[in-house]
């Protein structure tokens, strides 16, 4: 099962990122992974949290523009060339990556990365077919 990512629209204004982080923290929600992408005017914050639905609702309540997207969490062997091996396998399976970012935490010695791909569910099957270690929502949220 793909995992849920929360995306928040942020203007490039002082304090916007910290107010989102503060809001999530006040709700007692724990951030598992995050990335920020930015342009001159605006940025988007992508979050993997332990309770996506509650984070989504809390942000909506505060009038943020929020979107919930499905992404895939994949285990990456923690040794030189580990990421390259995973990417090669994905390329062979014809999976097109929109963006990816890494987790802070590790799982049984392996690194973890979030992949945003087209057609998440198909991609996930292809990855499993290639022997990649794909994590379920439960595994990720309970890290």
């Amino acid at each position: 099962m793909p995992i849920k990512q929360i995306t928040v629209f942020l203007e490039n204004k002082c304090g916007r990122l910290s107010s989102v982080a503060g809001l999530i923290g006040d709700e007692g929600i724990n951030i598992r992974a995050f990335s920020v992408a930015d342009t001159t005017d605006f940025g988007i914050l992508r979050l993997i949290v332990n309770d996506p639905q509650r984070a989504y609702e809390a942000l909506r309540r505060e009038d943020y523009t929020v979107r919930m997207t499905e992404v895939v969490a994949v285990q990456i062997p923690d040794h030189p060339g580990g990421l390259a091996e995973v990417l090669t396998l994905m390329q062979e399976a014809g999976i097109n990556i929109e963006y990816l970012y890494a987790f802070v935490a590790k799982l049984s010695g392996d690194a973890l990365a979030v992949f945003r791909v087209e057609n998440v569910r198909v991609a996930e099957q292809l990855m499993l077919g290639k022997g990649l270690k794909v994590l379920s929502g439960e595994e990720v949220y309970n890290l």
Binding site: F9, D38, T39, F42, T65, R67, T69, R116
Partner: peptide
């Protein structure tokens, strides 16, 4: 203002909209 309807998690799509 960016509404939930047009918002995307991909920068590329937002830039296209702009």
């Amino acid at each position: 203002e960016v509404s939930d309807l047009v918002f995307s998690d991909e920068i590329r799509k937002l830039e296209t909209l702009e």
